[in-house]
Amino acid sequence: MKHLTDDAINEYLDHELAEFDRSSLELHLAECAECTSHLEVLQEVFAQLSKLPEASLSHDLSSGILRSLPQPHALPPLIRLAAPFQAVLALLGLAITIPYAYEKIASSMTGIEFGFSLQPWFDLQMMGLNWWIVIKDFHLPALPGFTGFEFSDQILYLGLLACSIAWFIGNGMLLKDTRRNHP
């Protein structure tokens, strides 16, 4: 008699056998004491394994593994920052120059109708100019009864320097290893 293989018994225990294979395997088990005892041994092994506690690693290996994986090729950070900056500058340049360019072209090509007006663009430009003036004339609101602190520029810049150093060192220390030692 041909006995059942370990793979077949494992698949039977995992309920991965098709209905027909399952029936024929059960038929064999009913007749073969050796395979039945082998099945019982495997069942016992799996039962014992499932009772074992979850083993936890003493070190988190994930960061090391992730570091060792090939990194996707990324653009240098300077270029990534420069690209949107250039795009904004280019858009600003276009916004400022297009109405003037249109005026120049329209005046040099007398008799030709363009069929569209750039008045909304001029309005937008005017709005931007107004905002510029508002910011230019901006003053901090004065609090009633508060005359403000009088300090010299030297003290202000020295304070700024001291705060910058404290900021760099403090942020460096406080944000150090935050990715690893999160709370």
Binding site: L156, Y157, G159, L160, C163, S164, A166, W167, G170, N171, L174, L175
Partner: peptide
């Protein structure tokens, strides 16, 4: 607390400057 303190202090002085 410390992180908030140094950041607020720095940016407040920067804004005043």
């Amino acid at each position: 607390f410390l992180l908030g303190l140094i950041n607020l202090l720095f940016f407040a002085v920067l804004v005043v400057a």
